[in-house]
Design a protein around this nucleic acid. Structure first.
Length: 508
RNA sequence: GAGCCGGUAGCUCAGGAGGUAGAGCAUCUGCCUUUUAAGCAGAGGGUCCUGGGUUCGAGUCCCAGCCGGCUCACCA
């Protein structure tokens, strides 16, 4: 018999004994007077005499993290909400059943409730002297090892609950992620933005360049696409008079998986009527500075051994950045960056604009460690952005980089329907040349634009990537609770549970 | 999709010139009423990822595959 099956049988035998002693192995409501973090906050600094003088009865609960049995007494640590408190149990303070429960039937990972009073041990640790012990939930499988936690990356992702139990820093990462989202919501709400939800299943996908997931609706007998972006729906809402809207939700892109890409990822998109990309740059700087403070306590964030200052976000135009960050010999001149022949020598891309962006991505992108705004992008790569009045081959668009990755993309929205029609037609031509990711013609969106989209600025912020930066995480999987993995083969657990149940039933 | 690295007990990991598989934690038994990586004494536990091949003999060498990680490509 394998170790796991042996443990399974032992634990199921314990379940029967716990019941026989009058406890419930899968308990019931437990009204604790204080959570463990509350206990630590209230009494963490209280001295031994003070605790003895003001002896109060508390009820606490949590998962058993360590247990040290010493004959007629012993200690355990209970873990709740990421913090732990020691409890002390002794034979002469408990009923026979309670002591038996503690002595023979508690395993690491079990969830218990305890009532008692606080004291300090010889070594000074705050500890609950238990007068009543309650059983709340049994663990049937071995918990991860206590010294090293859970290291196996695959298990950490597949069984995130174990990761959260065993690795306190993982818990902190996801709490920080939650604070990031809360901070963004609060800041947007304070400025009058309205949160909305737009379709995830779309008949025509758009708003980004990516391959989609396709699904099927049976009753309507139509294929639908999981959205690659909410952009076109949010702008319809701006047309409808929701002048400040935002959505924080999932996008789905049928592309490769990497440390920076998960097929489903979370995006904040917000639109503000009557502003432009300059206005959004200023807003973004405030937004990111405050998010950094709310998430980490400081606008200066440590990332992979460097310090990123979200209080001072640099700004370069795309072409300035190429000159600034050029490392491969003497930098080109601004005239060369404007010269299609020069660009064609530097990139295999079809058009000068695409080639310029290609050069930027080769030369600059990974060097943008410090938070940086890059603005003024080539028109060809931005089918939904308004062009610059004085430079029609470029659009009023910027991206924000930090840690060498793109975390935001924003532009002044194109609001001329005839120009939008021409851009769609350019995309169709690209699609005919074989560009799988080219934008589709979206006449329904064109119709909406024909009713008048006010001058508007719109921005998307990649929440997962922002969370990576603000939690010092190297992989997007470390900030997504359940990243996509290939499915596991069948576990055979139901069969093992059935066998163990049959075996212990015979013993009983 | 390509390259590199990895997969040994429930967990964390050693080991391996080819010759019956190791530690710590966890589990079980015994002792222990202020311990805290509790301690002490003993015991059980393995498809060394899978399938082929070479060999008297493969966990170790070779090939293929599976799963994962990293890098690159695509992308945000």
């Amino acid at each position: 018999m394998s170790v796991e099956d042996e443990i399974l049988r032992q634990r199921l035998a314990s379940v029967r004994e716990i019941r026989a002693l009058g406890f419930s192995p899968y308990g019931h409501r437990f009204d604790y007077t204080h959570s463990i973090p509350e206990v630590l906050r209230l009494w963490g600094a209280a001295g031994a005499e003070e605790l003895d003088r003001n002896r109060t009865t508390l009820r606490i609960c949590g998962r058993i993290q360590t247990i040290r049995r010493m004959g007629k007494a012993g200690f355990a640590h209970l873990m709740q909400e990421g913090e732990r408190l020691q409890i002390y149990l002794r034979q002469d303070s408990l009923t026979a059943a309670e002591f038996d429960l503690y002595r023979r039937l508690l395993d690491l990972g079990d969830i218990v409730g305890a009532e008692g009073y606080l004291f300090r041990t010889k070594t000074g640790e705050l500890t609950l002297h238990v007068g009543r012990l309650d059983f709340l939930a049994k663990t049937l499988l071995n918990m991860p090892e206590k010294w090293h936690g859970l290291e196996d990356v695959e298990t950490r992702y597949r069984q995130r609950y174990l990761d959260l139990i065993a690795n306190p820093e993982v818990r902190r990462v996801f709490l920080t992620r939650s604070r990031i989202v809360a901070s963004l919501r609060r800041q947007l709400e304070e400025r009058g933005f309205v949160e909305v939800e737009t379709p995830m299943m779309q008949p025509i996908y758009g708003g980004a360049t990516a391959r989609p997931f396709i699904t099927h609706h049976n009753a309507l007998d139509i294929d639908l696409y999981l959205r690659i972006a909410p952009e076109l729906y949010l702008k319809r809402l701006v047309i409808g008079g929701l002048e400040r809207v935002y959505e924080i939700n999932r996008n789905f892109r049928n592309e490769g998986i990497s440390t920076q890409h998960n097929p489903e990822f979370t995006m904040l998109e917000f639109y503000q009527a009557y502003t432009d990309y300059r206005g959004l740059m200023d807003f973004s700087c405030e937004l990111l500075r405050q998010v950094a403070i709310d998430a980490t306590g400081s606008a200066e964030v440590s990332w992979q051994g460097r310090t990123l200052d979200f209080g001072r976000i640099r700004r370069f135009s795309l072409r300035e950045a190429i000159l600034e960050f050029w490392r491969d010999g003497p930098p080109p001149t601004m005239d060369e960056l404007r010269d299609p022949a020069w660009l064609a020598r530097r990139s295999t891309k079809a058009s000068p604009g695409e080639a310029l962006l290609d050069v930027f991505e080769q030369v600059v992108e990974e060097r943008l460690i410090e938070p940086t705004i890059i603005y003024d992008y080539p028109l060809e790569t931005s089918p939904l952005a308004k062009s610059k009045p004085d430079e029609p081959d470029f659009v009023e668009r910027f991206e924000i980089y930090a840690g060498g990755i793109e975390i935001a993309n924003a532009y002044t929205e194109l609001n001329d329907p005839q120009e939008q029609r021409r851009r769609f037609e350019m995309q169709l031509a690209a699609a005919e040349r074989g560009d799988e990711e080219a934008h589709r013609m979206d006449e329904d969106y064109l119709r909406a634009m024909c009713y008048g989209l006010p001058p508007t600025g719109g921005e998307g912020i990649g929440i997962d990537r922002l969370a990576m930066i603000l939690t010092d995480s190297r992989s997007i999987r470390d900030v997504i609770l359940f990243p996509l993995l290939r499915p596991e083969p069948p576990l055979g657990l139901a069969e093992r549970l059935r066998a163990a149940e049959a075996a212990t039933a015979h013993e009983g």
